[in-house]
Design a protein around this nucleic acid. Structure first.
Ligand SMILES: [Mn+2]
Ligand SMILES: [Mn+2]
Ligand SMILES: [Mn+2]
Ligand SMILES: [Mn+2]
Lengths: 216, 216
DNA sequence: ATTTATTTTTAGACAAGTCTAAATTTTTTA
DNA sequence: TAAAAAATTTAGACTTGTCTAAAAATAAAT
């Protein structure tokens, strides 16, 4: 089918195309920790396979086929993350690297049975939606806590930064998926926020508020 | 650490060295579906890394380090096979190819937790022993049914041929791991055997009898 | 509208792993 | 024990994916 490298490129292009319709060579290089020249080579290969639309110097978009493949990889990544957390009791900041390997296990039957085994979870441990076998998922409307006014609130449902340090910080502050929060005060000076998180009160920086997502 | 190709070579050498102390280039080539010239190249690499003892034209043996790595891969292979059968309800003839991919997932912590999750199984779906995290396992004495005389018997505990066709045949004949069998008759002409398998009677060829293993 | 800076592509090289064909070594057979 | 056969290694080539350095194209700034 597709090589491991090809899969990683498709996935990176998919993620990047959520913010920018046309994904640039340098963006891909940064995402994959590689060099622009290497990316150009691979883009030619993916274009030959008709997995991306590529015109020199113009950046790329995924074709329908390319997008489908990317979503299958993301499905596998998120289902394995869910497995690692829910069945093997890993913490949400520990699973990403393992899932980066496991997402390349090829069997579709395997991933469908894993999905069933876990009773068809809809979101991974970080709140990201898990596509079904056809690549469909509903993206609920998430907004950063930073966009809230005083007395507004919602349920923590996702993160914009998946780094282990951020996730560990959130864990320590009890700011985990599913928790109900309300903004009780916004500090004028630095736009930091004081939150009511169930019984307790927490003070978070604007940086954190921008990367923590809720559904209202 | 080691590449996927290196891991496959070490595993192949380990399996082959169970029958022959010194493993030959051609044996490895056959086991890995590759060419002798490719094997020679890889043997040099593995020897440089001190994972095998290699002298030109003389075949190879694993070093202690090489053997340890091979056993870790085998541990992973068999634990994943057990998972696929016991948790995801695959049949014993369906899991080998998937496990060939999964055995290369690198995390040791992952495999130890998987082991715990399944309550430390001692044997994989084909009756093969699962090494513990240190590579230890006890090899119980298995003998082929072909070596039995009339009225002798035992518990089916392993297979010598892991092919899907053989496993499917055994499944159909109810000749699965754990079943108690007794030889009721041996046909002089072709050495085929008539077995009592719990309530039923089955007639198996010498070919089959040689590849089906019991513990007495 | 040029010049300058940035981005992207090309050119040429390299490592890993594989292959075929030819050379060499070992083993078998006569 | 010398010739033939089989096994193994070497030589040279190819693919995938990567890199650096240089050239070309695009975007930004004067
Ligand atoms: Mn992840
Ligand atoms: Mn995730
Ligand atoms: Mn197997
Ligand atoms: Mn097995």
């Amino acid at each position: 089918m597709n090589t491991l490298a090809e899969e990683n490129y498709l996935k990176a292009i998919y993620h990047l195309s959520l913010s920018d319709a046309n994904v640039s060579t340098n963006q891909i290089a940064a995402a994959l920790n590689t060099k622009a020249a290497s990316v150009t080579d691979m883009l030619k290969k993916l274009a030959d396979k008709e997995l991306i639309n590529y015109e020199k110097y113009q950046g790329v978009t995924l074709t329908a086929v390319g997008k489908k493949i990317a979503l299958q990889i993301i499905r596998k990544h998120r289902l394995w993350e869910y497995f690692l957390v829910e069945k093997l009791n890993f913490k949400w900041d520990e699973v990403h690297e393992m899932a980066e390997e496991m997402e390349h296990i090829s069997s579709v039957e395997l991933i469908d049975r894993l999905d069933k085994f876990m009773d068809y979870p809809k979101h991974d441990p970080h709140g990201d939606p898990i596509p079904d076998r056809d690549g469909n998922f509903k993206k609920h409307e998430l907004k950063p806590i930073a966009s809230l006014a005083v007395n507004e609130g919602g349920i923590i449902s996702g993160v914009r930064d998946h780094s282990a340090t951020f996730l560990q910080y959130l864990e320590k502050q009890q700011l985990t998926i599913g928790k109900k929060i309300t903004v009780t005060e916004i500090i004028d000076y630095d736009h930091s926020m004081i939150l009511q998180v169930e019984q307790t009160t927490t003070h978070i920086s604007r940086e954190v508020a921008k990367n923590l997502l809720i559904v209202i």
